[in-house]
Amino acid sequence: MKPKMLERQKSGALPARQISTIYRVLVMAFFVLLAVVFVPRFASPGNLLNLVRNISLLCLMGCGMALSMLIGGLDLSIGSVAALSTVLGATIISGGNIFLGVAATLLMGGAMGLLNGFMIARFKLPDFIMTFSMMYIARGLALTYTQGQAIYNLPDAFTWIGKGSLGPVPMPIVFAFLALLVLLFVLRRTTFGRGIYAVGSSHKAAQYTGISVANKQMIVYLASGILAALVGLVYIARLNSANADLGQSWPLDAIAVCVIGGMSFAGGEGNILGLLIGGTVMGIIGNCINLLGVPSRFQDFCVGFVIIVAVAADHYGKKRQ
């Protein structure tokens, strides 16, 4: 326990934290440089637009995961919660009532998230077990509800939130920007945000200083559920269809984004802007695999390899300090 405390104190000091952020940015810059130099057409405007759009979706996925990781937990249910809430919402949306459908989707996502938080906070279920079970429960309900059929032909006014753009900026980028901005404000400028870091560092210590751990956990998982539903909405708008198989890869993608961005599994550590770094690295891997024509069988290997390189470089940098 002692060395860990010491380390935390050290990384908590401002200069060290800044150095580690700089190191992470360098790692990201290295990947970008590699892609620009070695991947044909990577730097073309069309590709960069696609890439940034995908990076924003990854960041948006990472937002909910970052919150649960900061508090020392994990939300494995984000993909399934997104699937369940969007198939319910899409039924209403395809019926023509867009506002009600969007509200229902976010409400459903929030409800599933709150249930996660409630069981974790009140019944002391381990975060992993609760959200892991919720992953199956929500997926099962979504499959039962749709009977495996897609809900499609969503109105154009709705698909705008995924396909459209605000001025020249595509909507997914707008959403990611807003989400990061809000999180940045909440985590840095509010007592609630600092409370999350405190709870993540040590549940006991936080409790002794009078912070309600249960309260923080419930709100964090509630937010994670709502964010999952939001990502789900953007996705079904882009795909112009809602299906129970949405988001199967999201939990692990989001974890990768957070970890590459410097979040710690132990909780209480990490800068929300790190998500931009994690999102960029993960986005570039996916993009370059296709641009380079990496054979299907070898693709998974490449993803794993790059994640290890990115995280290892980051840790090496921390140690050097």
């Binding site: 057409r41 073309s44 069309g46 590709n47 696609n50 996916g286 993009n287 296709n290 641009l291 024509g293």
Partner: peptide, 8 residues
């Protein structure tokens, strides 16, 4: 994947 192939 199709987006990337269209770019390529």
């Amino acid at each position: 994947v199709m987006e990337d192939l269209l770019t390529r």
